[in-house]
């Protein structure tokens, strides 16, 4: 339990650092460390597969792309777009709503789901595969279709228009 509290403290600390640093590149690097602490959390939960996938996908790919874009734009204080107060207030309210939803969801789930409590081996590759391709096949396939749609959409948006009409 001691390790959990230590890693949890690190997660929260680096998440806060992500928000409070002024330099966008530092911000991304703190976010990378935050994701790394998440990986440690997954390992503590004996979910090795999730841990390593989180490591590869978030730290290895998505954050590299973030960094890539930031380096290309070379953002600094002068070029930072100033957000109006209205946008800030709206952002705060939306964030609070999300927090309330999560809290409610976790309270409902507490002690009910066998994947939340008990069954600690579900995170290993074999068990996870069996659960995903058997019990949760439909949601799994639907989410992959969702991702595919997003991918096709992104390609369509990025593609140069060669001819009108």
């Amino acid at each position: 339990m001691g390790i959990f509290y230590f890693v949890a403290f690190l997660s929260v600390f680096f998440a806060l650092m992500t928000i409070f640093t002024k330099n966008p590149v530092h911000s991304v690097l703190y976010l990378v460390i935050t994701f790394f602490t998440f990986t440690v959390h997954y390992i503590l939960l004996n979910a090795q597969f999730l841990a390593v996938v989180n490591f590869i996908v978030y730290m290895g790919a998505i954050m590299v792309l973030f960094l890539f874009v930031l380096m290309l734009l070379n953002l600094n204080k002068d070029t930072e777009p100033m957000k109006s107060t209205l946008v800030k207030v709206m952002g705060a309210i939306a964030g609070m709503c999300l927090l309330a939803t999560f809290l409610g969801a976790f309270r409902v789930l507490e002690g009910q789901n066998e994947y939340v409590t008990g069954n600690t081996d579900v995170g290993l590759v074999k068990n996870l595969g069996k659960v995903l391709f058997d019990e949760f096949l439909l949601p799994f396939e639907l989410s992959s279709i969702l991702l595919l749609t997003a991918m096709i959409g992104a390609i369509l948006l990025a593609k140069k228009e060669t001819k009108q009409g």
Binding site: M59, G60, A61, V64
Partner: peptide, 9 residues
């Protein structure tokens, strides 16, 4: 996957 993760890093 471990090797992959480290290479990605």
């Amino acid at each position: 996957l471990y090797v992959f993760g480290v290479i990605a890093l």
